[in-house]
Design a protein around this nucleic acid. Structure first.
Lengths: 242, 242
DNA sequence: GAGCATTTGTCCGTATGTATT
DNA sequence: CAATACATACGGACAAATGCT
């Protein structure tokens, strides 16, 4: 019945299988093609954007979107770079800052330390194909690795730096994933609209042998760029499902 | 600079703390109040809807929305009804159908059975405060509980029926959560727009002692009604984080 | 850097359709 | 049935970002 949904469905079918980044017809083009006003053509493209099928950029145009699957699992734990590359994308991580701070209360509790314990505070952004898709911070007590910054400028992976310079074996001990709307800070850092859904991935790493807390992190990721899938493989205590 | 975002932010601040279900000013009211056209007032309300702060119903109005947190965790496993009630909501589960079918391939693999094995196929919908928020299906091999339908009409909980009539102890063995856009089937069942984000929660229950697959399920839940949080507490194998 | 065309973003006024109350 | 409220659509206008000359 509604014209713009017909157009959206039609376009969705046409775009199915197109390569990511392919250009989609502009609003005026669609308007003349389907014999509607610009408003209806615009609504159709916006509908496709809500369905995460396209990405729209003011001044540039509308382009086919694609999401990569990021599986967080106990049994099959792929790294970020590997995941993105396997999906045919180009990953990039940018180190924004490395500070030396006292541990905030929440992070201290997770790491099993006293609040105020000296720690490295690492802030990094993540890109897929030059598109800013993630922002996150990591806390590592300084006694784990005294001069983390030296290693971080040479190697990209915090994990690797911990293993080589800290001589520890970090394993993921706890992880929590939820879908949120970005708080003001993340809004600015990720340069997104307030209505863009983002995943919050919180994580804690402990030493494999001693069990001591080594690192905890919080990472925000755009849901229109990544599809996070959480798999719990272990047998878990009973849940009454009704 | 943009007028409608100013209005949206203003309204968001005003609505903060309002009781869920509270009525929000209509488009014409907002238009005259802020001295803008109906288009700008409408955009502001749509922005709030994208932020999941309000719910809009044609013919009725715009109302304050609220999401309940549903935590899927190993350490603290609450039931659906308990979770909703703890959040101050009224949960309801409606049994749509109970069929006897042969197990499809995917479900058979999960349950460790042969495809085509006779099984109960249970379809149910879930409501929060009379709002349709979830739709899901469950598969239970008939040899686990021969006459499941009898029990299901008396008790709401599949888990309880399995314990009482099947004399087994189901525990969650595997669980997978992802955020999706609803496929056509779910679109119809949940009566939502194609752009409404929904969670897909897949789950497998095994017997606590024998380890035999008892039940597997797939449940779709509206993300504007529920915020799913997944917690992995167990120590998981190493993941290289970069 | 300046200028220009293209494209999306915002906004107006108006009208009609459709669902709810 | 009538009033209300949201949904769709038109035509027109200007703003803002992008990409190219």
């Amino acid at each position: 019945m509604t014209r713009y949904l017909e157009i959206a469905d039609r376009l969705a079918a046409e775009l199915d299988g197109s390569a990511p980044g392919t250009r989609v017809a502009s609003e005026p083009e669609l308007a003349s093609r389907f014999g509607v006003g610009r408003a209806a053509a615009r609504s159709a493209l916006q509908e496709l954007e809500r369905r995460l099928l396209v990405r729209r950029v003011q001044g540039a145009g509308t382009f086919v979107n694609s999401r990569i699957d990021y599986v967080i699992s106990g049994s099959r734990p792929p790294s970020w770079h590997t995941t993105v590359e396997a999906a045919g994308g180009t990953p990039r991580t940018v180190l924004k800052s490395v500070d030396r701070v006292g541990l905030p209360e929440a992070e201290a509790a997770r790491l099993g330390r006293q609040p105020g314990t000296p720690a490295h505070h690492v802030v990094r952004t993540r890109y897929i194909n030059s598109l800013l898709t993630g922002w996150g911070e990591e806390w590592i007590p300084v006694d784990v690795v005294p001069d983390l910054d030296l290693g971080l400028h040479a190697v990209d992976s915090v994990d690797l730096v911990l293993r080589q310079m800290g001589r520890v074996s970090p394993v993921r001990a706890w992880c929590r994933v939820s879908l949120e709307l970005p708080p003001p800070r993340v809004l600015r850092e990720l340069e997104v609209e307030p209505s863009t859904p983002v995943y919050l991935i919180e994580s804690l790493s402990k030493d494999e042998t001693t069990g001591a807390g080594l690192m905890c992190s919080g990472a925000w990721t755009r849901a229109d760029a990544v599809r996070v899938i959480v798999e719990m493989s272990e047998t878990i205590t009973h849940e009454e499902e009704r």
